[in-house]
């Protein structure tokens, strides 16, 4: 559904996106994670046709997005900051959306507003950050998009609304086969809902995999050796990071396999156990931060 092909974007004198290629299948949820300033928002702006990439192309449903109103009409976009038209009233903005998107459903908005509880007579500048986010989500769900692009959608939302919003997104996927592209650094939010995850760092995609694949491949092992561990353990291609705590060695591997486990067992082990690794830990290791800092979280 979404094809991002060798996209490079230069802003000022900085290459913010470097040769990015990603694909998202229809009806799936794609999560983009990265540190502040990694290029998440820039990539999203290329995806929604706000920026024209300097190289490469972005296509949705086999059509170029940039300067293509027909495609944009089918994209819902919730930006990380929503402060357009501060003097407008909420109901005026609803009207604006209705005129802009032919697929806008006022009924849908009304039913969503049962959850969001927005006062339609308030002006936008009177709304808090969380309320603005609710409004943007409500409007963009009401245009019944084929592709929904969300930039940090849950920031500023309280836990109850956050859960409601997540459930609304899940229902969108289930009922209308909507494709969702979501960026966040609240990794625990993404952990439950994404099909696929990409990690972006300094404008480059470091890692793409299904969440399931990540769980299968990136593992943390607790190992106790009978004697000394092999000298070259650190240099094994499978070992991403390692730390010693007393007699216990913690190993992080990016490419877990039976063979790797057998190879380890061949080194006279006393004990080997897998430790749960959250997406947050995975993010830190897969992005290579664990390596740079030489730190392993226990």
């Amino acid at each position: 559904m979404i094809e991002i092909n060798e996209v490079t974007k230069i802003l000022g004198d900085r290459e913010v996106l470097k040769n990015i290629t990603l694909g998202v299948t229809k009806g799936t949820i794609f999560g983009l994670i990265g540190e502040n300033g990694a290029g998440k928002t820039t990539l999203i702006k290329c995806l929604t046709g706000i920026y024209l990439p300097d190289q490469g192309r972005v296509r949705i449903g086999e059509q170029e997005v940039f300067d293509n109103p027909a495609v944009k009409a089918r994209i819902g976009y919730v930006a990380d900051q929503n402060h357009c038209f501060p003097g407008m009233k909420v109901k005026e903005l609803i009207r604006f959306y209705r005129l802009s998107y032919s697929s806008f459903s006022e009924e849908r908005f009304q039913s969503l507003n049962q959850v969001f509880q927005l006062d339609l007579n308030k002006r936008l500048k009177q709304l808090s950050k969380g309320m603005k986010m609710r409004l943007a989500l409500g409007l963009n769900l009401s245009i019944q998009p084929e592709v929904l692009v969300l930039d940090e959608p849950t920031s500023g939302l309280d836990p109850i609304v956050k859960r409601e919003v997540t459930n609304l997104l899940l229902q969108e996927v289930e009922e209308r086969d909507t494709t969702i592209f979501i960026s966040s650094h609240h990794l625990s939010d993404l952990e439950r809902i994404c099909d696929n995850i990409a990690i972006i760092q300094e404008g480059q995609i470091q890692y793409v995999n299904s969440l399931e694949g990540m769980k299968r491949n990136i593992k943390k092992l607790q190992v106790v050796f009978q004697e000394e561990p092999p000298q070259d353990l650190k240099d094994w291609p499978e070992v991403l990071a390692m730390e010693k705590l007393g007699r216990v060695h913690y190993l992080i591997t990016k490419e877990y396999s039976r063979e790797f486990e057998e190879k380890l067992k061949g080194c006279r082990l006393m004990f080997l156990e897998e430790v749960d690794l959250s997406l947050e830990d995975m993010f830190i290791y897969a992005a290579g931060e664990g390596l740079k800092n030489g730190k392993v979280l226990v």
Partner: peptide
């Protein structure tokens, strides 16, 4: 199920 557990319907 997906709503109750807040997990992806595809899962």
């Amino acid at each position: 199920m997906s709503t109750l557990l807040t997990i992806n319907p595809n899962t």
